[in-house]
Design a protein around this nucleic acid. Structure first.
Lengths: 218, 218
DNA sequence: GTTCAATGTAAGTGGTATTTACATTAAATG
DNA sequence: CATTTAATGTAAATACCACTTACATTGAAC
């Protein structure tokens, strides 16, 4: 009954390998663990992983799914911890994003790397990546509360996400403070998001003939 | 006199290797060329590169310097092609950034990866990465023209850069259009930059007690 | 012209992903 | 319950890779 060794068959090798790989990544802070290393960590031969993953990329993609779950979970927590449609809630979500990028450096980069995924896999990601949907919901609710429900929340959310993502990646690569050591990522994002949202609410009253992409599409 | 083979010593192997590596990267669209491959490309043994580069990382850093030169050059061109301090000039610079990321995919990612550089090297980058300084200048001039020279142009430039960078990387990794296939990177960035700049100019008249980081620091 | 440092080569070393042929065993089938 | 079978494991290769070492060539300084 003991779940330990002495058994020829592991029983749940696939998941064990995903977790082992995740731990190796977490510990080393890089993605360059070896398959043999992961196999040894769960007490199995170097060839065994290939019964469950076509190659290392496939294992990495599985680890990435875990990472997405982690970020999604944090996003949900943030959503629930703040008043619906509040500005502070959105800023907090941004902080959650930056904190995740900082604390789970390697996972964060893994998540956004193009690893030659199949089209189906990308389709799957649309539903899986709940964090973004949380942001969209927040933006939508915020705008409605401000008396302007006629905005393209998805578009605005993408803008804010882009900004958060840019800040997170530049910081991770030690580039954000290159020209000004005093710059604080959170501060930068807060300001940006605020400017974005207030700017948008003002703009939407503007009778500009140009399509700005800020109005909801038909 | 002929610069071709039959010579035991290459004459300019270091630069030849940098160029060869750049071509391999450009061609394959990835950074995973092999040292032997690069060496063979210039007709030299697999061990020869190690007379000029301590390891592969060092060669990659040299290639990265090239990439920075390329982006800087494009930025300068963009600067000169537009009226100083014009909004269109800044938007054009954003387009330059996105185009570079798109056309030189592998170089772009190489540029921003943290490759464990020494402190001196990062210091060097501050002066080297001219593209950012172009942006700062543009923002500064723009704000002055709008009758508000009392802004922290470096801070604002960092915000806009972050947004551009986020859009560029998300697009490169096929994530930007994940939730809305109709989203256009250039459009997104234009809108964002516009909102940013007009928002900032409005905000600076606001007597908010909170330091927003938008005012120039003492 | 000799010496020497720079720069090249050939032949390793140790690590890697991945494959192949074979071994074990849980579960389905009779 | 006995047998078959497919899933899942192993050991031992293969091929590639970064990098090292001992030796070879050569341009330039003396």
């Amino acid at each position: 009954m003991s779940p330990t060794r002495c058994r020829y068959h592991h029983g749940d090798l696939r998941n064990a390998l995903i977790i082992a790989a995740a731990e190796l990544i977490e510990c080393a802070g890089t993605l360059d663990f070896s398959m043999a290393e992961a196999a040894a960590k769960v007490g199995v031969s170097a060839a065994a992983p290939y019964r469950h993953f076509a190659d290392k990329e496939e294992l990495l993609r599985a680890v990435r799914d875990l990472a997405f779950l982690g970020l999604d979970h944090r996003a949900m927590e943030t959503l629930e911890a703040h008043e619906a449609g509040s500005l502070e809630g959105m800023l907090a979500l941004g902080h959650t994003y930056l904190a995740f990028a900082r604390e789970k450096r390697a996972f964060f980069s893994l998540m956004w790397e193009d690893r030659g995924d199949s089209a189906e896999r990308r389709l799957e990601a649309q539903t899986k990546y709940g964090g973004f949907h949380v942001l969209v919901t927040m933006v939508q609710t915020f705008c409605e509360k401000q008396g302007n429900g006629d905005v393209d929340a998805l578009y605005i959310a993408t803008q804010i996400w882009s900004m958060a993502h840019g800040i997170a990646t530049l910081e991770a690569n030690q580039m954000l403070d290159l020209f000004d050591a005093s710059i604080q990522p959170e501060h930068l994002l807060d300001d940006g998001a605020r400017t974005m949202l207030t700017g948008i609410l003002n703009t939407s009253a503007d009778p500009s003939p140009k399509r700005t992409g800020l109005q909801k599409r038909a």
